[in-house]
Design a protein around this nucleic acid. Structure first.
Length: 383
DNA sequence: AAATGGACCAACCGCATTATG
DNA sequence: GCATAATGCGGTTGGTCCATT
C-alpha cells in the first residue's frame, strides 16, 4: 500500500512540539475543526506533516484527555483487558475513555509489564512463568480454561472498539462534535448527557442459551472467536427471568436477520423461545448443530457442574466461580499481587505460587464482577 | 561536580485498513 | 475494480529528567 506522501516531504519540522505550535494548532482546530489533516498544517501555518498534527491532537491536545497518574482501577482494567486481548491498545483505550492508546501502551511498557514480571507472571501470556515448563498446576489448567473465554471476550472487545470507531466516524460525518463544542463543553454539561455504552456483541447472551441447554458449544466453536454457536432444535420452552436488582437493558443491537438451523439444516427460528431469540438477535449468528465435547466446552461444564450440585442453577457468577482455582475471600479490588488483609489472612503467604494464584484469582474475580458480565446476570429456571 | 544508567513519555516510523475518486 | 489518499494502529526511538556512583 502506498505510504502517506506527507512523510516524504522535506523541510517539515520533526521532534517535540513548541507551545507556539500547540497554540497554532489549537486555534486552527477551534476555528475550523480538523477536516483533512493533510491540508491542515499549511492552512494553520505549521511546518509539520498532517500526521504529526493529528498525533499531537489525539495524544496530547484533545480536551477530554485525563493526564497524570493511573488509578488502581485503571491499572486493573488495563491488566485484565491485556490478559484478554493482548496488545490491542486502541481496543483497551475504548474502555478507558480519557486515556489514549499511546498513554496506555507506554504505561504498560514502563510500569505494568515490569510489575507482572516481578510477580513471576509472564506479561505476554499472563501465565505464571514457572508453568511454562509444564508443572501442570491447577492455576495453569484454569488459565487454559480462561483462554477460551478470553477468545470470546477478545472478539467482543474488538467488536466494541470497532463500533466506537464507527460511531465516532458517524459523528464526524454528521458534524458532531463541532470544534466549538469540543472546546466549550463543560463537565457539568457532559454529566447531563447519560453515558452511552457502546453497542457490543455480548457473548454472555449466548451463554444464556448454553445454560438453558438449548445451545451447545461445539469443539471448534470455542477454537475461534469468530465461529458461531450452534443451536439444537429441542422444542421445550426455556424461561428466563431477571434478577430483581439487575435490569437487563432492551436490545441495543441493530436488528439483523438471524438464521437458526437445526441438525438437518432446517430453519428452526420459530421454535426458539422469544427470550432466547431476543437475546441472540443482533449479537451472534446461529447455525447448525455439531457435537458437544466435554473437553472443550468448559463453560457448559462449569454451568452443568453447578446445576448438578444445585437444583436451581445459579447465575453467571456461579458458573465462573466453579473455575476459580482457590477462592480466597472477598474480591480484592487492588492491584493483583498487592497483598490485602483479606488475602493475607486466608493464606496468601507471599511465595511465588501464592502470588500467582492471587493474580489469577484477581483476574477471574474481576471478570465475575465485571459490569459487562453483571449486565446479563441471568437466573435459570426449570431445566 | 561529572559521568552513568534507568525511567519515563512524546513523537516518529511504517504497515494495515478504510475511504474516495 | 483499481489506484491513491487518508487514517488507524502498534512497535520503536530518542530526548529529558533524576537517582546513583
Amino acid at each position: 500500500m502506498v505510504r502517506s506522501p506527507c512523510c516524504e516531504k522535506g523541510g517539515l519540522k520533526k521532534g517535540p512540539w513548541t507551545p507556539e505550535e500547540d497554540q497554532k494548532l489549537l486555534a486552527y482546530l477551534k476555528e475550523h475543526g480538523h477536516g483533512s489533516w493533510q491540508a491542515l498544517p499549511a492552512k494553520a501555518g505549521l511546518q509539520r506533516c498532517g500526521k504529526s498534527c493529528r498525533l499531537r491532537w489525539t495524544n496530547y491536545l484533545r480536551p477530554d484527555i485525563k493526564r497524570g497518574k493511573f488509578s488502581l482501577q485503571e491499572e486493573n482494567c488495563i491488566i485484565r483487558l491485556h490478559a484478554l486481548i493482548g496488545n490491542k491498545w486502541s481496543a483497551i483505550a475504548t474502555h478507558l475513555p480519557q486515556r489514549t492508546d499511546n498513554e496506555i501502551k507506554n504505561y504498560w511498557n514502563t510500569h505494568l509489564k515490569k510489575r507482572l514480571d516481578k510477580m513471576g507472571i509472564d506479561p505476554g501470556t499472563h501465565k505464571p512463568k514457572v508453568d511454562a515448563f509444564g508443572s501442570g498446576s491447577g492455576v495453569l489448567k484454569d488459565a487454559a480454561h480462561l483462554s477460551h473465554m478470553a477468545q470470546w471476550e477478545s472478539a467482543r472487545l474488538e467488536a466494541e472498539a470497532r463500533m466506537v470507531r464507527e460511531s465516532k466516524l458517524a459523528s464526524n460525518q454528521l458534524g458532531f462534535p463541532s470544534p466549538h463544542q469540543l472546546f466549550t463543553t463543560t463537565t457539568a454539561a457532559a454529566a447531563a448527557v447519560p453515558p452511552v455504552r457502546p453497542k457490543c456483541l455480548d457473548v454472555l447472551k449466548a451463554w444464556q442459551g448454553i445454560v438453558s441447554g438449548k445451545f451447545f458449544v461445539s469443539s471448534d466453536s470455542l477454537e475461534s472467536p469468530t465461529s458461531t454457536l450452534n443451536f439444537s432444535a429441542v422444542n421445550s420452552v426455556v424461561e428466563f427471568h431477571q434478577q430483581s436488582s439487575v435490569a437487563i437493558p432492551p436490545p441495543q443491537f441493530p436488528v439483523c436477520n438471524i438464521t437458526c438451523k437445526g441438525e438437518m439444516g432446517e430453519d428452526v427460528s420459530n421454535q426458539m423461545a422469544p427470550q432466547v431469540k431476543e437475546a441472540l438477535d443482533g449479537s451472534i449468528s446461529v447455525h447448525g448443530m455439531s457435537a458437544y465435547t466435554t473437553e472443550n466446552a468448559w463453560a457448559l461444564d462449569s454451568f452443568e457442574a453447578a446445576a448438578n450440585e444445585n437444583a436451581s442453577i445459579g447465575n453467571i457468577a456461579e458458573g465462573l466461580s466453579a473455575i476459580v482455582p482457590y477462592n480466597c475471600g472477598e474480591q480484592n479490588a487492588s492491584m493483583p499481587g498487592e497483598k490485602t488483609a483479606t488475602s493475607e489472612s486466608c493464606g496468601g503467604g507471599g511465595n511465588l505460587e501464592d502470588l500467582q494464584g492471587d493474580y489469577w484469582n484477581s483476574l477471574l474475580l474481576n471478570l465475575v464482577d465485571d459490569p459487562l458480565l453483571q449486565s446479563v446476570m441471568i437466573t435459570y429456571q426449570g431445566k
